[in-house]
Amino acid sequence: MVTNDVLTELSKKALKDGIIGGVITLKRTAPDAAVHALITDPEMLEDVDSMIPYFPDNCANFIKRITKVAPPNKPILAILKPCEMRAVVELVKLVQIQNKNIIYATFDCYGTIARKDLKDKEIPKSQEFIKSASDGKFELREICKSCDYIRSETADFSYLTFEKDTPIIAQTETGKNFLEKLGVQFVESAPDEGLKSVMDMKLKAKTALYENLKSECSGTDNIFKTFAHCINCHNCMTNCPICICKECFFESDAMDFEGDVFLDLASRKGGLRAPTDVMLFHIGRMAHMATSCVACGACEEACPEDIIVGQIFKWISENVQSIFEYKSGRDWEEELPLKTFREEELEPK
């Protein structure tokens, strides 16, 4: 059986030719589920469709895991969505990924379908999905509908599904060498007609989303209502590629007090909610990682209570990053806002 998926075909050949030691891609585990997998056997790629519209987690976490002790000696090809590539760039800057011997491939991404919406159904094939993604046949995740980072420019090479004839573009020397070795045709400058029309649609959706969030979630009462169902499970944090602290402040002893202190806290307002510190956790987490949030929505997918936490974080982090004219994961060179400063800026008042 031949899949139509170009990136899978290409990685199969690279594996067979011994150019790479393994490939990281999505692989189905059930009709309605898929996982990221590191595959070394080309046979196992037979049924792989690397661009299925499914988001099990942010793959940057997996790459972090693989390179944590030491990066591989033989290159690994990682097929990523643009938001995952953004997370990789942020994690490299945060010294969490040892960026050696990983070849990054991305593709123009229309978006993915929420895992909850796919339950007991079938994840559509990428070809089928791409063909009808723009006519609204598939209900995408909110965060994907309004995504403004649908093409990555930091990967080694990209598959431009938005463009006519869907070319592959080499974006770095590594990418160029890799594609040349494979004998795959590629271009060196990207056409952007297709990108523009998809982007227009996404930006319109983003404006609408932000307006909606402003009226629904802004203000003390609204923000408490938004997080009213929170059970403080910290799933959003565990699944966040950017939340990297080994010991989280919000899970530390700083949250524990003597019974008398809890009584005092309760008596200030007549009562104390359990689990405690829900708002502190969410606003605090925002303040800690909004400068690097890549708006992948892993948090929202992981939320057992369907809180729109991903949309809120996307909205906040875009505004926060704009203070520093920064966009997380857009560029390898831009410095992390919290790692640097200008002598003259942001004077209070």
Partner: peptide, 9 residues
């Protein structure tokens, strides 16, 4: 402060 501004707090 930006977070508070956007959240209307």
């Amino acid at each position: 402060r930006k977070i508070f501004e956007i959240l209307g707090l």
